[in-house]
Design a protein around this nucleic acid. Structure first.
Length: 183
DNA sequence: TGCACGATGAAC
DNA sequence: TTCATCGTGCAC
């Protein structure tokens, strides 16, 4: 396993989103290492993307999105769930990739299909907001295999309010995976 | 200080 | 299709 470095995240958001498929989200908690394979993501391109949180300007909540790449942007949604993003591109660009589903690999609850279930399964909450993903206990890694992954592109989920941006094909998942949240 | 609403999930 | 549940953002 090779931990992804800052340069991985400091690239065009759609590229990073697709490249995150097949990578491993790793989180150490209570002395146990949890590992899940990323099988579904969504790209949020920046303030011009009306579905992105950064489209409404910089606020206390989305502050991390405006920071440097390679950090976790974790926020609470609907008063009871957490969602996790990875910040991409140069500082100030305010883009990110939402992690939507994992294939359980080690010490991960069976159901991690969906952004909130993913966070629950990995023990991710607001305390990890802003956490550098090059840290020892929370990071993303590649397994070094050079397999080709077939990628399916679909509209993002739950952003119907975003007009034409709701129809853009910015949700990506591994073709044939049984662990995606929706086909 | 009040209030409408959400990048969801589960139940019905 | 409905609802639980509360932090955020913005209107008064």
């Amino acid at each position: 396993m090779q931990k992804l470095k800052r340069e991985f995240y400091d690239r065009e958001t759609i590229t990073v989103a697709k490249d995150l498929l097949g990578k491993y989200l790793i989180r150490s908690k209570n002395g146990r290492q949890k590992i899940g394979r990323i099988v579904e993501v969504e790209a949020y391109l920046g303030p011009h993307d009306l579905a992105a949180h950064s489209a409404r300007g910089r606020t206390a909540r989305n502050e991390v999105m405006f920071g440097p790449p390679g950090r976790a942007y974790v926020y609470m949604i609907y008063g009871m769930h957490y969602c996790m993003n990875v910040v991409t591109e140069r500082e100030g660009h305010a883009s990110a990739v939402l992690l939507r589903a994992l294939e359980p690999v080690k010490n991960v609850a069976a159901n991690s299909r969906g952004p909130a279930l993913l966070c629950r399964a990995m023990g991710i909450d607001k305390r990890l907001n802003g956490c550098d993903l090059e840290s020892a206990r929370f990071f993303i890694a590649a397994d070094g295999k050079r397999e080709t992954i077939d990628i399916v592109a679909r509209p993002r989920i739950g952003v119907d309010y975003a007009g034409v941006w709701a129809r853009r094909l910015l949700r990506f998942y591994i073709k044939g995976s049984a662990y995606v949240s929706r086909k």
